[in-house]
């Protein structure tokens, strides 16, 4: 079904400095162990344990409010910034607990990129949007920045559409282009993991298709966790699927199994649309 992806030379010069610690470890890129999350007294996640395999796509499904976004924000510690949010349990990235006191949350977020539900480019030019992350992390050289911007836009399959004028305002792009720009912006800081929170829910079917193609090509280099409400999308693009319900991970397994032979009755009801 998928049309071949318009990524050109980018594979060859892919910027990823691969992190090889995983080879010492039989487990996944990210190991979540017994993770609970509280917003004040409200418990949003209950003892979630999940293993996220490297260079694969993990889809998270479940009804609204079941804690999927909260779970993603635990992995890059974006929940740290919410007053009253508290976690217990461990999130191991290449074997290191990201909640250890000696972990720098800003460097963690550089390694764990995130794409949001609503495309949220900054009100700056396309170039400035992509160059923002590298700049923050200390890249000053103009030509180096230009290189990173071009490489990231190519990797996000947006370069051909914007190369004529990368200095035009990002907000002048269409919704689908804005979302690919946000992906390029995330790729520009060379993350290893990409968290995507319903990245297509604000987009039309054609833009959605392009993002899906993009995700399939990105999984060669990145570990991707994507939240989606679209069952077809989840089964099309993901290798593994986790089903959340009321803050609990009900079932986790290979997507083919989850969508054809779910073990849990609640999973079956949800994926067949009989839920609720």
């Amino acid at each position: 079904m998928l049309v071949s992806v318009p990524v050109s030379i980018s594979e060859a010069q892919s910027p990823q400095p691969r992190w090889n610690a995983a080879s010492e470890c039989v487990c996944g890129k990210v190991e979540v162990e017994d993770l609970s999350l509280f917003y004040g007294t409200f418990q949003a996640l209950r003892n979630v344990s999940i293993s996220i395999p490297e260079c694969a796509v993990l889809a998270l499904i479940g009804p609204s409010g079941c804690g999927k976004s909260s779970f993603l924000r635990c992995i890059n510690r974006l929940n740290d910034l919410i007053p009253g949010a508290r976690t217990t349990g461990r999130v191991l990235l290449d074997g290191k607990n990201v909640y250890d006191p000696d972990v720098d949350a800003f460097l963690l977020r550089k390694r764990v990129g995130m794409v949001f539900q609503q495309p949220n480019p900054f009100p700056k030019s396309i170039f400035e949007n992509v160059a923002y992350g590298p700049r923050i992390h200390g890249v000053k050289n103009k030509s180096e920045l230009a290189d990173i911007v071009e490489r990231s836009l190519r990797r996000a399959a947006l370069w051909d559409e914007v190369k004529d004028d990368v200095y035009k305002p990002a907000l002048a792009l269409s919704g689908g282009q804005q979302q690919r720009l946000c992906i390029a912006r995330a790729l520009a800081v060379e993350p290893e993991i990409l968290l995507m929170d319903e990245p297509c829910s604000a987009l039309d079917p054609i833009s959605t298709g392009r993002i899906e193609e993009l995700i399939c090509s990105l999984k060669e280099d990145y570990t991707i966790v994507i939240v989606t409400h679209n069952m077809q999308q989840a089964s099309r693009i993901s290798d593994y699927t986790g089903f959340f319900l009321m803050g609990e991970l009900i079932e986790f397994g290979e997507s083919a199994q989850i969508f054809t032979r779910p073990k849990d009755k609640r999973t079956e009801d949800y994926v067949t649309g009989r839920f609720g």
Partner: peptide, 12 residues
């Protein structure tokens, strides 16, 4: 969403 986008890139 603007500040979320920036923080998620590792900005302080």
């Amino acid at each position: 969403s603007y500040s979320d986008g920036s923080l998620a890139l590792g900005a302080t």
